[in-house]
Computed example of a mutant assay.
Amino acid sequence: PEYNGVMPPVLNNAMAWTSRATKDWRDAFNEKIVGLATHSGGGGQKGLQAMRIQFQHLGANILARELLTTYEKPLNEDSAISMINQLDKLSRI
């Protein structure tokens, strides 16, 4: 979920501690494939941008497609299936 325009503090904290768990702080995220999604009572786009910046900083490869749902905008199942298929395909490379 989005938290006041950024990613939730618990996610940020988990990423920070994970990045400190190895000798090279990027080991846990470097070249990993990441798909971003959020559900927000507000806009949600700022939360996705914050996550994209954080994962890029940690060296992850982030899909261009994002999933964003709100109370007024339900999940587009075709987009979700496409994103899952892309993640699956890239994970096999």
Rank of each mutant, 00 (worst) to 15 (best):
P1K: 00
P1C: 11
P1H: 07
N4Q: 14
N4Y: 14
G5E: 06
G5V: 06
V6N: 12
P8T: 04
P8Q: 10
P9F: 11
V10Y: 11
L11C: 06
N12S: 15
N13Q: 13
N13E: 14
N13D: 14
N13V: 09
A14I: 09
A14C: 04
A14R: 10
A14H: 07
M15N: 06
M15Q: 11
A16Q: 14
A16N: 14
W17A: 07
W17R: 11
W17F: 10
W17H: 11
T18V: 14
T18Q: 15
S19G: 05
S19D: 10
R20K: 09
T22D: 11
T22A: 07
K23Y: 05
K23W: 09
R26S: 12
R26Q: 15
R26T: 11
R26E: 12
D27I: 00
F29R: 00
K32Q: 05
I33E: 08
I33A: 03
I33R: 10
V34E: 01
A37H: 02
T38A: 03
T38H: 01
H39M: 02
H39V: 11
H39T: 05
G41E: 07
G41D: 07
G42C: 04
G44L: 00
Q45R: 14
K46C: 03
L48M: 03
Q49E: 12
A50F: 06
M51D: 04
M51S: 02
I53Y: 13
I53H: 14
Q54E: 11
Q56Y: 15
L58M: 13
G59M: 00
N61H: 12
N61I: 08
L63E: 07
A64M: 09
R65D: 04
E66F: 01
L68Q: 05
L68I: 10
L68N: 12
T69H: 11
T70H: 13
T70S: 12
Y71A: 08
K73E: 13
K73Q: 12
P74G: 10
L75A: 02
L75G: 05
L75D: 02
N76W: 01
S79E: 15
A80Y: 01
A80M: 03
I81K: 15
M83Y: 00
I84A: 15
Q86G: 04
Q86M: 13
L87K: 00
D88E: 07
D88F: 10
D88S: 11
K89Q: 09
L90C: 13
L90S: 07
R92Y: 10
R92V: 08
